[in-house]
């Protein structure tokens, strides 16, 4: 009788409380903290045989080999730049997803900010020019307007003059 009870209790424990028996899973790698470094470095490196993937993301055999190589080198205490240099020595700059800064990549790195500079300068110059071209609070003068209408009519076979965009636009601005 008692043994049956115990048996039932044990059974209940077994069925209803599996976590009590479960053990903590182990990490795939011995040192998960170090693996973070390995992953961070692997994400900078291109898998050469893949379409366009980092060796961290790829399961291709070469990517796995290179990732193991990275892990070995991290284990032996080499720095990220050592490891990247090692890879570049063997596979060229192609292997780096972060291109090095040198004469041939200067434009790549500086380009976006150069573009920004050009964009801002063009913007400011244009805005300043506008404010001097468009005088007396608003639109073109009557004469200018007429001349432009004539020009537009002459330029285009379409009935631009009848259309009268400038005048309607002017009306709009007065209201707003």
């Amino acid at each position: 009788m008692n043994s049956l009870k115990i048996g039932i209790v044990l059974l209940c424990l077994f069925v209803f409380a599996p976590p009590a028996f479960a053990k903590e899973a182990e990490y795939m790698v011995a040192d998960p903290e170090m693996e973070k470094t390995v992953n961070a470095i692997s994400e900078e490196l291109r898998c050469l045989v893949c379409q366009n993937q980092t060796i961290a993301d790829s399961n291709a055999p070469l990517a796995v080999d290179l990732k193991n190589q990275v892990r070995d080198m991290v284990e032996s205490g080499q720095s990220q730049s050592d490891i990247i240099d090692y890879m570049v020595e063997r596979y060229g700059d192609f292997v780096r997803y972060r291109p090095p800064m040198n004469t041939s990549t200067m434009l790549l790195w500086v380009g976006p900010f150069l573009l920004l500079l050009i964009g801002v300068v063009v913007l400011v110059v244009n805005l300043r020019k506008r404010t001097t071209v468009i005088k007396n609070d608003g639109d073109l003068s009557v004469e200018e307007n007429e001349r432009l209408q004539r020009l537009l009519a002459a330029e285009s076979s379409a009935p631009a003059a009848k259309h009268g965009n400038l005048s309607s636009q002017k009306a709009g601005e007065e209201k707003s």
């Binding site: 700059d93 192609f94 997803y97 972060r98």
Partner: peptide
Amino acid sequence: DMGKISVGPPY
């Protein structure tokens, strides 16, 4: 002909 590079997420 100035070499092959990759430009990826870090850039």
